[in-house]
């Protein structure tokens, strides 16, 4: 059972790291703010969520799993909110200009 969980956890964490790397790559290569935000908000949240799920598979105890889930929820929430705020601020700047 534990080996199955280990394999599952490692696979999910690897996939999550891939998502984060893609986010970093997108941030580096994409041309403007909105397309960067578009890539970052999604890939970041997915990557962190996958890493959280993977780490949860490999830990024991409800307390550790709960704090991992808390991290994932906070990252998802703040990523979405700040993405929206940054996009809104840039639109307002454009309107003013």
């Amino acid at each position: 059972m534990s080996t199955v969980l280990d394999i599952l956890g490692t696979a999910m964490m690897t996939a999550g790291t891939g998502f984060l790397l893609m986010a970093a790559f997108a941030f580096w290569r994409l041309p403007d703010l909105l397309s960067r935000l578009h890539a970052l908000t999604k890939a970041d949240t997915a990557g962190v969520a996958l890493i959280v799920c993977g780490a949860a598979c490999m830990t024991s105890g409800i307390a550790a799993v709960l704090s991992l889930v808390l991290c994932g929820v906070l990252v998802a929430l703040s990523g979405a909110t700040t993405g929206h705020l940054i996009a809104q601020a840039s639109l307002e700047d454009e309107e003013r200009a």
Partner: peptide
């Protein structure tokens, strides 16, 4: 003021946490 309505639901989760 200019932060908009998205901050309120964010605060509703973050403040109790």
């Amino acid at each position: 003021a200019p932060l908009g309505e998205m901050v309120v639901p964010f605060a509703k989760v973050v403040v109790p946490l």
